[in-house]
């Protein structure tokens, strides 16, 4: 295991038990059976979901930055997350979300449709420019359709549910959500790790990578599958959580040797840590309602993005040559 992975894993193993005891109600000083109930039924699934969603976002971000050779790439830009969101929004609009299972399933179907479209549009030839454009267009289309569904919402409650859900959160999630997202995210991270050597080859550009025996079409399929599984399942259980996929690889990169392959596992661990800590801190804040996780991370993420741009302006390198 690399040094970065070891540090982040240790931090994560420290953070998980802390997040179980912390919250608006601290588990110390209350009845033991109640404490056990809170931990087993509320905090443990929530913590595991935070770890799952964060790990998926971090790993997908690292892989996308490697693939696009661009440190400003975010997995949410490429259609899969907006596709998943569209599926979820449709389930609210048709009043299907209440059944519990239909929301994530429609959301996964949305992610799957976006993946299929991406693979169809960009698969032949496997060019990166085509992939980027196709992804951006799918994202725009899914975004527009989401707005359309919102504007046609049958009643104010559906509207409010949709808008709240889109903000992304981990409140009131159950073991069922963990069972859905964790295996898919893990599978997605394994797929992305398989693509890692080819991402290293892309350090020298598409031509060089092809000459090194990288099958660009296969690489694109691995990425679509890996990002689809991680991001699709993440959105299905937690809504849109932005900026983690962008921020985490940046924070982690200086701890590694900067090869894309060295970044995927540490970024997964870093993403897990960031989402877990952010979610735990949020639920302790003395606010009337709970600040939505998606909003909070965007509030941290957007200034971080601006700071990155400022560093670029001042001639910083972002780990680039």
């Amino acid at each position: 295991m690399s040094r970065a992975s070891a540090i982040l894993l240790a931090a994560l193993l420290l953070a998980i038990p802390l997040s179980l005891v912390a919250g608006r109600t601290w588990v110390f000083g209350i009845e033991e059976s109640r404490a056990m109930l809170i931990i087993a039924e509320l905090r443990l699934p929530r913590a595991l979901l935070a770890v799952t969603v964060g790990a998926g976002l971090g790993a997908a971000g690292a892989a996308m930055q490697g693939y696009l050779r661009n440190p400003l790439a975010d997995p949410g830009l490429f259609g899969i997350a907006p596709g998943a969101a569209l599926g979820a929004v449709l389930s609210f609009s048709f009043g299907l979300a209440a059944s519990g299972w239909l929301l994530p399933i429609l959301s996964l179907a949305g992610a799957g449709a976006a993946m299929a479209l991406l693979a169809l549009l960009a698969g032949r030839g496997g060019g990166i420019a085509l992939f980027t454009l196709a992804g951006l267009m799918i994202a725009s289309l899914a975004g527009a359709l989401t707005s359309l569904v919102i504007s046609l919402a049958p009643n104010p409650w559906a509207l409010s549910e949709i808008v709240t859900w889109l903000m992304g959160a981990l409140t009131d999630r159950s073991w069922a959500d963990v069972m859905l997202a964790a295996p898919m995210t893990l599978a997605g991270i394994v797929v992305l790790a398989r693509a890692a050597p080819a991402l290293d080859a892309l350090t020298l550009g598409e031509d060089a990578a092809r000459s090194m025996g990288v099958d660009m079409e296969k690489l694109l399929m691995l990425l679509v599958a890996g990002v689809g599984l991680t991001i699709g399942s993440g959105v299905a259980v937690a809504g849109i959580i932005g900026f983690v996929g962008l921020m985490v690889p940046h924070i982690v990169r200086p701890l590694t040797d900067r090869r894309p392959s060295s970044l995927i596992v540490p970024s997964a661990l870093g993403g897990a840590l960031l989402v877990l800590v952010a979610d735990s801190v949020l639920r302790m804040l003395p606010l009337v309602g709970e600040l939505r996780l998606g909003i909070a991370l965007s509030l941290i993420g957007a200034p971080f993005f601006l700071w990155l741009l400022l560093r670029l302006r001042r001639g910083g390198t972002l780990g680039l040559t």
Partner: peptide, 8 residues
């Protein structure tokens, strides 16, 4: 070739 990342 443009070297994308600052590797060793």
């Amino acid at each position: 070739p443009q070297i994308a990342w600052d590797v060793s």
